[in-house]
Design a binder for these strands. Structure first.
Lengths: 136, 136
DNA sequence: GTTGACCTTACCATCAAGGGAAGCTTCACA
DNA sequence: TGTGAAGCTTCCCTTGATGGTAAGGTCAAC
């Protein structure tokens, strides 16, 4: 007989919060396999494994919908690595897009900040920069 | 007499949406100076200027609360550039923190993806990587 | 049998932005 | 003068991942 654990233990072992495990269930990611007579969620070792996958995928920033797809592929023996890689590549593009946006913000902000003396003077190139709007 | 414009024109000239201008008002950033008899918001050129500042600051990723502070300083002749620079530096740190997080995701994800053939094979290093969880 | 830790569901908040409804105003054109 | 379109108002709902809190049921140990 398989050992079943409660949501608290599953949380502790995966590093997720019990709150988020319930949330992932509500989002359709992963139903627990059984409930105790009192209604407590009970997870077996396979479910725990999948919760671990969710944790890792979130750590890599995958959104819930993509994790859904990844879990489906993981459990589908007829999957192709092409399908998996496609999802990963898509997410990678998203990440790189965000990095680019942030780097652009950083450059602009750094330029403004570097020109600012940061002293008692009221004159401030940062505010000047923000005021240089391109009103139509 | 100062020329007053409606929210739609203010939106067009700043590049903000009318929706967001109302939202910024509700958030305490910037009240319009007058209302028409029918209740329409009316903005003068100074308000328009401030809306432009909000637009620029959002473009740089400043959160609303910090924009609030920046607007306060902008309109305060007793400000010091030290105060402004402090806010900018704080935001710059936030941005760099986010960049680091994303770059770490990118590296890990890229390694997994590079090892994946992306063909018809079911075997997939990406899924393998996600399964390598550190369950306690 | 009581206490404390753990579980349940349900609701609210965050943050910046957008969607859409219902109703009023303004303007241009016939 | 009438009408229709475009623009404005407020109000409520949705997003996405996460957290908080409240009210109440359960379990185990002492």
């Amino acid at each position: 007989m398989e050992k079943l654990i409660t949501i608290g233990e599953a949380a502790q072992r995966t590093g997720l919060s019990a709150k988020m495990i319930r949330h992932y269930e509500a989002s359709g990611l992963l139903k627990c396999s059984k409930r105790s007579e009192a209604g407590y969620r009970l997870y077996d070792s396979q479910q725990l494994q999948l919760l671990g996958v969710i944790k890792q995928a979130r750590k890599l920033g995958f959104p819930i919908v993509q994790i859904q797809s990844l879990l489906d592929l993981l459990q589908n023996p007829d999957r192709t690595s092409r399908e998996v890689k496609s999802i990963a590549q898509h997410h990678l593009n998203e990440i790189e897009h965000k990095i680019n946006e942030l780097q652009q913000m950083r450059e602009t902000l750094k330029q403004l900040s570097d020109n600012c003396s940061g002293d008692e003077n009221a004159n401030c190139p940062i505010l000047d920069g923000l005021c240089q709007n391109s009103l139509k």
